[in-house]
């Protein structure tokens, strides 16, 4: 084989790790949204992947509406798509989840319904085709062995920034304190005058928004498609479970491990077999260690 194409193992591993890091960063952002909603509200949001999909589809729509430089369209999408998704999630919370008093089983059924409604709504309004979204800028970082998309490195950095922001919000602000108080003990929080209903709506909208941000960031390297929500949903489930239901630190750690190892596993195994093995593994973790690998027992 030609020497310039055939790389050594070291650079090859670097490339695989970079790809893995992009996936891990986006996955962490999506999964933290799911984990927050579960942690604070005890709601398993099966429609979380559809909020991700909506973010991507709206990014396509917004950047196509605005003619001009791709950077301008991208920035507009990065601001407005998550806001629209958050608004929709807040409406869904008020109209559906709140009326079910956040009963865990009833909300699962309702969010399954929501999944079908959003997915089919996107199919009807957006159509069955996958559509590309232009990256806001186009430069390549050149390593000695290969060039790598500068945008993907930007995605990693942006995700890390947003995650740091979420962490600061939760631990350093009054809003975070209120959220943690509600998570810890809903009744006492209510008794101390915390508007629990509004906190729930806010958390649900915020969780959906994080999924949408992740989708807007990653969609220029993929394509917007109405069925693209299923994979992030299943992966987020896996990450949230392994990280411990409701534990943010564990979620981010698990996303890093799974995102990074995913690239490597798919080199050695058939992708379907890899999925089978990881699904069995996660199910077994849930059966034998219900609080996850990093979680502590919840009240």
């Amino acid at each position: 084989m030609d020497g310039s194409i055939c790389m050594d193992f070291g650079p090859y591993l670097l490339l695989a790790s970079l790809e893995g890091a992009v996936q891990a960063a986006v996955l962490a952002l999506t999964a933290v949204g799911l984990s927050l909603v579960f942690g604070v509200m005890r709601v398993v949001n099966v429609a979380h992947g559809e909020f991700f999909m909506l973010g991507a589809v709206l990014a396509w729509w917004i950047s196509n509406m605005l003619t001009g430089s791709p950077l301008f369209g991208f920035l507009a999408a990065l601001i407005f798509a998550p806001l629209i998704v958050a608004g929709l999630a807040a409406v869904a919370d008020r109209l559906i989840l709140k009326r079910l008093s956040y009963d865990p089983e009833a909300t699962i059924v309702a969010t399954i319904g929501l999944l079908y409604i959003i997915q089919q709504g996107a199919l009807t309004l957006f159509g069955p085709d996958a559509r590309p979204v232009a990256a806001p800028f186009d430069f390549r970082v050149s390593f000695p062995w290969f060039g790598y998309s500068g945008y993907k490195i930007f995605v990693i950095l942006a995700c890390v920034l947003v995650l740091l922001g979420v962490w600061a919000l939760l631990t350093r602000t009054r809003i975070g304190l209120i959220m943690r108080a509600t998570q810890f003990d809903r009744e006492t929080a209510q008794a101390f005058g915390i508007p629990v209903a509004r906190v729930y709506t806010g958390v649900f909208a915020f969780g959906a928004m994080l999924a949408a941000v992740a989708a807007v960031l990653i969609v220029p390297t993929q394509q917007a498609y109405y069925l693209m929500g299923l994979d992030p949903l299943l992966l987020s489930f896996i990450v949230v479970i392994i990280g411990g239901l409701g534990s943010l630190k564990g979620t981010v750690l698990a996303a890093a491990v799974i995102g990074l190892s995913d690239g490597i596993i798919t080199i050695f195994f058939d992708p379907t077999l890899a999925k089978i093995l990881s699904t069995i593994l996660v199910a077994m973790i849930l059966v034998f260690r219900p609080t996850g690998l990093f979680g502590t027992a919840t009240r």
Binding site: I96, A110, G113, T124
Partner: peptide, 9 residues
């Protein structure tokens, strides 16, 4: 499937 979802909700 839209109607399936709506029926569930």
């Amino acid at each position: 499937l839209f109607f399936v979802g709506l029926a569930l909700v």
